[in-house]
């Protein structure tokens, strides 16, 4: 049940909650729309962190005003999430770099192998053209 609170606090809570949710939505939209993985890393990290701060500050204001005492345990989340989100992002980006590099190396090896096979084929054909097999019907 939402308890009664003064108008300024209600407006502050509403603005913070809606702004935080909007920022999170923008982050998810960026996650959906960005073209490559390395540009997809940023929007949910930035938008998520900012939106989370907004919503948690709204929660802090609400519980402080309605509970008639200071209520700041949301500070825990406000501190923890911005610290751990970049760690996750960096770990993921490094894993993606590693995987991309390995994929490119595999691609290059496969390309070199196919080039080698094609060269051998071309060489064999050239050899065959230079020394034609003695066929059974000599031209008169």
């Amino acid at each position: 049940m939402i308890s009664d609170l003064p108008l300024w606090a209600a407006l502050l809570v509403a603005v913070l909650v809606l702004g935080g949710a909007l920022l999170t939505l923008l982050g998810a939209l960026g996650l959906l729309r960005s073209p490559t993985f390395y540009s997809r890393v940023h929007p949910p990290t930035l938008g998520g962190t900012l939106g989370m701060s907004g919503i948690l500050f709204a929660s802090m204001v609400y519980f402080t005003v309605t509970g008639k005492r200071l209520s700041v345990h949301e500070i825990l989340l406000v501190v923890i999430v911005p610290v751990v989100t970049p760690i996750t992002m960096m770990l993921l980006a490094r894993a993606a770099l590693f995987r991309d590099r390995r994929l490119r190396r595999d691609d290059e090896e496969a390309y070199a192998r196919s080039r080698r096979v094609a060269d051998e084929l071309a060489q064999a054909e050239e050899e065959a053209a230079r020394h034609p097999e003695p066929s059974g019907d000599p031209t008169p």
Binding site: I2, A9, A10, A21, T24, L25
Partner: peptide, 19 residues
Amino acid sequence: SVTIVSWALLGAHAMLAVA
């Protein structure tokens, strides 16, 4: 003020659900 907070919470729930 209760109405304001209630509607703001509803809108935020909807936006987070879309996200």
